[in-house]
Simulated scan of single mutants.
Amino acid sequence: MKQDIVQTIHLQVERIEQLFNSLDPTPFVGRDLDPQAEDFITGWAEELPHKGAFRIKVTVAECPQLEPARTRLQQAVKSYYLSRVEAQRLQLRQLFRNGRWSLLIGVSFLIACHLLSSYLELQFAADSLLGVLAHGLVIAGWVAMWRPIQIFLYDWWPLQRKRKLYQRLAGASVAVEVFHNMHQ
């Protein structure tokens, strides 16, 4: 699939203002998208191919000034999704910080368990109960490595994927068109 392919996300609303969170007191540009609009746009984008650009096409029943509305909406979408990119970046950074600490703790605990297990095996080789305990310590040490392994192998993927999606949405072009007979 080529990078120059543009995927279109279609929305239909009565008025442009419906796309924004009515509880957000800030001016139109920079306002949060309405949670349902954001869910719709993001959900649709997640279903599209993972390459190429997005175009958000909004069909409205009424819009007295089409070009200013399109410009404001373009800026608002860009601002909103860039803030989401930054939030994902910070969340990913925090996850890796937690992963490094978990790895340090896990490796330290694994080494301690392995050393104690080796000591028990050398000192009490004939005692089967302590032999079981020695093997249990090695298993416990590896279990302690579960969280850092999970972070570095699996947990970061969804955050990175979402960050890239938000970057693509922040760069989306926005088109607004009036359709007078939306309900017919």
Results as ranks from 00 to 15, higher is better:
53 A>Y: 01
43 G>V: 02
166 Y>T: 05
69 A>N: 01
66 L>T: 05
118 S>G: 11
164 K>I: 10
137 L>E: 03
91 Q>H: 08
44 W>V: 12
173 S>P: 02
98 N>H: 15
181 N>W: 08
184 Q>P: 04
150 Q>A: 12
23 L>H: 14
38 E>Q: 10
28 F>R: 15
73 L>R: 01
102 S>V: 05
25 P>Q: 09
116 L>A: 14
106 G>Q: 02
143 V>K: 05
98 N>C: 09
64 P>T: 05
99 G>V: 04
161 R>Y: 07
108 S>P: 02
129 L>Y: 10
35 P>N: 04
17 E>D: 15
162 K>V: 08
153 L>H: 04
97 R>L: 14
45 A>L: 01
165 L>V: 02
183 H>I: 09
18 Q>Y: 06
54 F>I: 00
57 K>Q: 12
126 A>F: 09
182 M>H: 07
40 F>N: 08
140 A>S: 15
146 W>N: 06
61 A>R: 14
43 G>Q: 04
7 Q>A: 09
73 L>S: 01
59 T>F: 02
99 G>S: 08
43 G>F: 01
166 Y>E: 05
169 L>C: 01
136 G>Y: 05
49 P>G: 04
40 F>L: 12
147 R>L: 09
13 V>R: 13
30 G>I: 04
15 R>L: 10
65 Q>Y: 08
109 F>R: 05
